[in-house]
């Protein structure tokens, strides 16, 4: 390798190192925002000192949660594929992930939000729509991110050595998934059912 190529390679590695740390710091930051929403949920959904929750469609909750968890598997599959220059599984993995993400979004936005609780229904509506809304925004941005990566991947960008975009997209997707793993029990499972 010529010395110019070595230095370009070095600079990519350096940037990768910075990008990784930067992304994780962004997640730390976001964790405080999601943590604030969780704090609000346990502060407001409480009656006489007992943690309560509204009656939500349990089947729906289980389905959307499973769909989102499953999507993370395909995201991981896509990332592993590009790390081995397996373009076919890379692209199909991305598309399946985006599709499952959209299924999750449909479950939340159409079915959950179409249920008996509305945003203006006191603390139950406020917290439910606040938490699912903020999370849905992140899922939506994740789907858009995946589609951008897919579009570029289809045009031949990314390789086994250079796929920071894919990596960032995958970590982001897993992160949004992880947030839901905290939100799902907080909304659907913990506390005595009222209303």
């Amino acid at each position: 390798m010529s010395s110019v190529a070595v230095s370009i390679h070095e600079s990519y590695r350096e940037k990768l190192r910075n990008n990784r740390l930067g992304l994780w710091l962004f997640f730390v930051s976001e964790a405080f925002m999601f943590g604030g929403l969780l704090a609000a949920r346990f502060y407001l959904w409480r009656e006489d000192g007992v943690v309560v929750r509204p009656a939500l469609d349990q089947q729906l909750g289980l389905i959307v949660t499973s769909v989102l968890l499953l999507s993370s598997y395909f995201m991981n599959r896509a990332e592993t594929a590009i790390a081995h220059d397996d373009r076919e599984n890379f692209l199909s993995g991305l598309l399946i992930t985006a599709f499952l993400g959209l299924v999750f979004l449909a479950g939340v936005v159409i079915f959950e939000w179409g249920g008996h609780i509305k945003p203006w229904d006191g603390v139950f509506g406020a917290v439910l729509f606040g938490m699912t809304g903020m999370h849905a925004l992140h899922v939506l941005s994740g789907v858009i991110f995946i589609l951008i990566i897919w579009w570029n991947g289809r045009k031949g960008h990314f390789s086994a050595d250079r796929h920071w975009g894919v990596e960032a997209c995958a970590i982001y997707w897993h992160y949004v998934d992880l947030v839901w793993i905290f939100f799902y029990p907080a909304l659907y499972l913990i506390g005595r059912v009222v209303h």
Binding site: A40, Y43, L44, E47, P54, I117, K118, P119, W120, D121, G122, V123, F124, G125, A126, V127, F129, G130, H195
Partner: peptide, 21 residues
């Protein structure tokens, strides 16, 4: 969305608890 205003009146108020804290 009733996060903070305890006096917030919404259409669902009769059904559910009032506003927030």
């Amino acid at each position: 969305m009733g996060f903070f205003d305890p006096g917030l009146a919404g259409p669902g108020k009769a059904l559910l608890e009032g506003g927030g804290d």
